[in-house]
């Protein structure tokens, strides 16, 4: 605060100018490649457009079509269930592994690389791998299940492996397995955040008699809470946008019985299979609003729990 030797107005004007300079590349990209196309999509959502003929204004018709479309509501439900299942599981799993790796584990580099490996495997290949691993007839997972609890297994309970991608109940858990397997990115972010927690805080907590659990609860968790919130929100957004895996599995049919008709899958089918561009644009905008509401909700609920060090100022 002793910096304020010059009149306050000049300094803050200079700082504000620098702020605009720093964000100017982003502002340019935003206006040209995001804001423009977003408004363009909004316009298209009020039109009938089939790529070939010019867009024709139809008002709210596209939204009305969707409101009475069973598949649209089904796709919203599928994505919501998938999100509720995969996002919390993913966070707990990645954080757990990141904490393990943050201990003084030998061969840290090797472990880190191996845990991260699945998330660099291309979506297409990873999905095909899981289609094959989870194949009810030849898949290795159901082979294990049968070998242990099948009719002739070690413990003959007569339980057969699930039909996974062919079963309306098991298809979403099967997709969740694929997403959990690629937990490497969020694990990296958590690990980076864990390593950023000042060791002085741990030392101080230890001197005050805090055990491992208390240090985790009162030091680690608050210090990494902004990053946890970040991965939670981006996790929701990402899982609502699931497309590639679903496309590889069912080619846009959402089989069985629309049980894997993910939201964006249906959007894509409408846009590029049915060439109902206007309806697809309306779907895109509804998705945007759904995500917006969920995010604002998460930010609002978390305000009390997320801790920003330099704002609070008390830590040092």
């Amino acid at each position: 605060m002793a910096v304020r030797i010059l009149p306050k107005g000049r300094l803050s004007r200079r700082e504000a100018l620098w702020f605009w300079l720093f964000i100017s590349p982003w502002v340019f990209g935003y206006v040209v490649f995001t804001l423009g196309p977003t408004l363009g999509a909004l316009y298209l959502s009020f039109t009938h457009y089939d790529v070939i003929n010019p867009p024709r204004w139809v008002g709210l018709q596209n939204y009305g079509i969707l409101f009475h479309d069973f598949v649209f509501w089904q796709s919203l439900k599928v994505s919501a269930i998938y999100t509720a299942l995969s996002v919390p599981l993913g966070i707990v799993f990645s954080l757990f592994i990141a904490i393990l790796l943050n201990q003084k584990v030998p061969f840290l580099g090797v472990f880190r690389t191996l845990f991260f490996l699945p998330s660099v495997i291309p979506f297409v290949a990873a999905t095909l791998l899981f289609i094959w691993i989870l194949n009810p007839a030849f898949g290795i997972i159901d082979f294990f299940i049968r070998a242990f609890v099948g009719p002739n297994g070690l413990i003959p309970l007569g339980i057969d492996g699930p039909q996974w991608f062919q079963d309306p109940f098991w298809v979403i858990p099967a997709f969740t397995l694929i997403s959990l397997w690629g937990f490497g990115s969020s694990m990296l972010i958590y690990l980076s955040a864990l390593q950023g927690v000042p060791t002085a805080l741990y030392e101080a907590a230890t001197i005050d008699g805090a055990g491992y659990w208390k240090r985790f609860w009162h030091v680690t968790l608050p210090m990494i809470s902004p990053v946890l919130l970040f991965t939670f929100i981006t996790g929701i957004i990402g899982s609502f946008q699931t497309f590639t895996q679903a496309w590889v599995v069912n080619g846009g049919t959402g089989s069985p019985a629309y049980a894997s008709m993910f939201y964006v899958l249906y959007l894509f089918v409408n846009a590029f299979r049915n060439f109902a561009i206007g309806t697809a644009a309306a779907q895109a905008w509804i998705l945007f609003i759904v995500i917006l509401v969920l995010t604002i909700l998460a930010l609002w609920v978390s305000r009390r729990y997320v801790y920003y060090e330099s704002e609070e100022g008390g830590a040092f």
Binding site: T38, G40, I233, I237, A271, A280, Q283, A284, F288
Partner: peptide
Amino acid sequence: LFVLATLMLPYEVTLIPQYVM
């Protein structure tokens, strides 16, 4: 807030107009 909004903006929204552009 615009950055956050972009973060929440599904790329499908910009996909079609960008392609035309």
